[in-house]
Amino acid sequence: MRINIAVADSHPAVLVGVERVLSKFEQFNITGTARNVGELEALLAAKHCDVLVTDYLAAAHSRRDKLAFLGNIQRLYPALQIVLFTIGNQPAVERAALNIGIRSIVRKTDEEEMLVEAVRAASHQIPARVLAPPDSEHSHTVNPAIASDRAVPHAVSPFSSLTPREFEVLRLYASGLTVTQIAQHLNQARQTVSAQKLSAMRKCGVARDVDLFRLVYENPLSLRLDDSHSTGLMPAGQN
């Protein structure tokens, strides 16, 4: 199922960048972009959107008024999941944003993978992420999952028990490919890939796709290829 995404930001370069990043994934469909409140209201009224990626966007100057605008959008479109994509670093304002229903907050200084995972998590209605407070006024606020991963580099990954093929299948599935597409990519039968996916999910202790995406979202570094897993495609049929 494709995820329909609206992108709103007052800076045209940001709009182009976000659209370029998200368009890499076949499951993401950019329904439109908006540079101001009027354009965003028109876009949401005209097209169905599952996720809105936006900075604080309102004619008013204060962050509080801008949050009120986003809160109104949330009331008008209760099924719309909002990802706040911002350069700011104001924990009190961000907590208020989460309280009005913003699904997640991503910094514009974060890696692009953070935005991709936030959008995917929002589409599955995974609970809102509360960002870790900064260590100092100059520090970079990070997702708590990444913070814990950095703090405990030798922690056991929830994916450590997977075979290389199961790991690859799960990684590709989490990146947005369907089972059929993975089968074509790995030159395997669809039934084989499906069985590998189910086996991997059992080993990870999840039974539903939404729980799988939540696991990946909470362990965003764990599904990157590293020295403990294959760094390329293996011959078809290898498990």
Rank of each mutant, 00 (worst) to 15 (best):
S10D: 14
A68G: 12
D9S: 00
E111Q: 09
R75W: 08
L76N: 15
D55A: 15
R63S: 15
D50L: 06
R64Q: 15
P78D: 06
E41V: 13
D135A: 14
S10W: 06
N99F: 07
L44R: 03
E94Q: 11
D55E: 12
R95V: 05
P12Y: 02
A8F: 00
V37R: 13
I87K: 15
I73E: 11
D110G: 03
R107K: 07
E94N: 10
A92V: 14
E19G: 09
G38P: 01
Q125E: 03
I102D: 08
S10Y: 11
I102G: 09
L44W: 09
V93C: 14
H61W: 05
A59C: 10
D65E: 13
E41H: 05
P133H: 10
L131A: 13
E19M: 12
V18G: 06
A13E: 15
L15I: 02
V37Y: 00
A59I: 09
P12R: 00
Y77P: 11
L80T: 07
R64W: 06
A8L: 00
I87Y: 09
V93E: 15
A96Y: 05
V14S: 11
V53S: 04
P127N: 03
V93P: 00
E39F: 01
P91W: 01
L15V: 01
F25V: 05
N72V: 07
L22W: 14
T109Y: 12
A96I: 04
I126V: 11
A79W: 10
Q81T: 07
K66R: 14
G71A: 12
R107L: 10
D55L: 05
A132W: 09
L70M: 13
K108W: 05
K24P: 01
E41F: 10
D55F: 08
R103T: 04
S123I: 04
